[in-house]
Amino acid sequence: MKQKLSRSLFLIPALALLSIFVVYPVVNTLYLSFLSPEGKFVFLSNYADLLTRREIINPRGFARGFAFGALPHNLLWTLIHLPLTVFFGLLLAVILRHVKGGVIIKSVIFLGMVTPMIIGGVLLRFIFDGRAGIVPVVLSIFNVAPRTLTAHPDTALIALILGSVWIWAGFSMVLYSAGLETIPKELYEAAQIDGATPRHIFFKITIPMLKPITTVVVTMTLLWNLRIFDIVYAATMGGPGGATNVLALQMFFYAFRRLEFNSAAVVATILMLLAMVAATPMIRSAWRESR
């Protein structure tokens, strides 16, 4: 009994901090999202109104091929960025595992990850610049006329997504590199004795053994995709014509440029719900491990 009580006492500081800095803001944001600017309780009206706004979902954008709205942009970001990040991270980790100087190469790749994202955004602006950037120069080898990819609405979003793969791939590479080291060598040796080909070894041993790492990489990348802000803010400010706008940036504009705090709270709540869905696999995995 005494032991239980002392355990509970130790929980109090953490619970107090969580209540003040997490629970209260979350509940208050949720409550704010149900209020009109005049403070009247309107329940889901703000949500209905927001989801019909052009900056959130833009049906006309689908017809012409750009500026789909912040919500579809986030989804598109996830659809392209997530598989590429997982693929390149794994590929780099496997390739560089036995390469001489692989550690140095990995460190260089990981630099993108430790660079502040706001600086990453500025770098992307210059990397895709038609006059000074390296990407248009490389593309010109394939007879693509050089142009500033982030300045044109039809290429700006994809340019930022691919740029962010470069920034984030270092994260998945490091996790997969660590994961590869945990796979027992005996498994590979046994497979080789049984006559398994490298392809079989990779798909039947490496990939299944890396499943917990993949769960972490996918979840963290999903969460990162949902809260993407600084790269877009620094590189394009959501433009041109809203072609690169994302939910977190729109939330910022609602809150601090339009001073529409209820709209900002609605976006924040939608982001929170999406994040909860994204985090479910990792929470489940952690739960299973703890049991």
Partner: peptide, 24 residues
Amino acid sequence: GAFQLAFWDQLKLLWVAPEMLPEV
């Protein structure tokens, strides 16, 4: 306010897609 941001952003669009003038 919001107009200032939109003015800057829409002009960036007009500069590379002048045919979008009516929407801008």
